[in-house]
């Protein structure tokens, strides 16, 4: 009996110390990690979507509180008008969460572009949603007012071959993101206008 109690105590104390230590390290590094991700993963995606803009979308950004979560928006200025924003969305793929960067035109609600940022899909199959440009370019010009669906579900999106679940996850993520986009749209327009020149 004493043995068992000792084991429980040792394991519990170790686990608690480990959890506490990790929470500390995480809170210390989270800001830097966010910055690094912005620079190396999200940055290139945003720059591709916002190609031709006259400002730096990575600098011209703002945050809006959506219930519990805080969402980042990156503003793209075209022809002197701050009429495009990029925001992040998540879809559920085959290997977990898929991070998406969505660029949208505030006047027409049409997609300016889309990019996959973080994912854990299978290399060579689902990962092609990120690596193969032909998948992401087809979203350009599609409207956020209609649900995104792959062709076998009666939609317009040509799925990545061999990666139906990934493609569906991306579509579902985009469709879901339209909900909070519409809800926050008045605030987005108001805040984005400040970046026009």
């Amino acid at each position: 009996m004493r043995d068992i109690i000792r084991m429980i105590v040792v394991l519990a104390v170790l686990g608690a110390l480990s959890g506490g230590g990790l929470a500390l390290v995480r809170s210390e590094t989270s800001e830097k990690i966010e910055f690094q991700q912005l620079k190396f993963v999200k940055g290139p995606a945003i720059q591709e979507i916002m190609e031709g803009c006259t400002n730096d979308p990575l600098v011209d950004r703002f945050k809006i509180k959506d219930g519990e979560v805080e969402r980042s928006f990156f503003v793209g200025v075209f022809d002197g008008k701050a009429n495009n924003v990029c925001y992040e969305a998540e879809g559920k793929g085959f290997g977990g969460e898929i991070g998406l960067m969505v660029g949208v035109n505030l006047e027409t609600d049409e997609l300016l572009g889309m990019g996959v940022t973080t994912h854990s899909e299978t290399p060579g199959l689902g990962a092609r949603a990120k690596d193969d440009p032909s998948f992401r370019v087809q979203f350009k010009g599609m409207s956020l007012n209609q649900p995104f669906k792959i062709m076998t579900d009666g939609g317009k999106v040509d799925a990545v071959s061999g990666a139906t679940i990934t493609s569906k996850g991306v579509c579902a993520g985009l469709t879901k993101s339209a909900e909070f986009y519409k809800e926050l749209k008045p605030q987005i327009i108001e805040k984005a206008a400040a970046f026009a020149n």
Binding site: V25, R26, T29, K32, I33, Q36, Q37, K39, F40
Partner: peptide, 10 residues
């Protein structure tokens, strides 16, 4: 893992 993400992301 966290420190590498924070300082040597590539």
């Amino acid at each position: 893992e966290l420190v590498m993400q924070a300082y040597t992301y590539p």
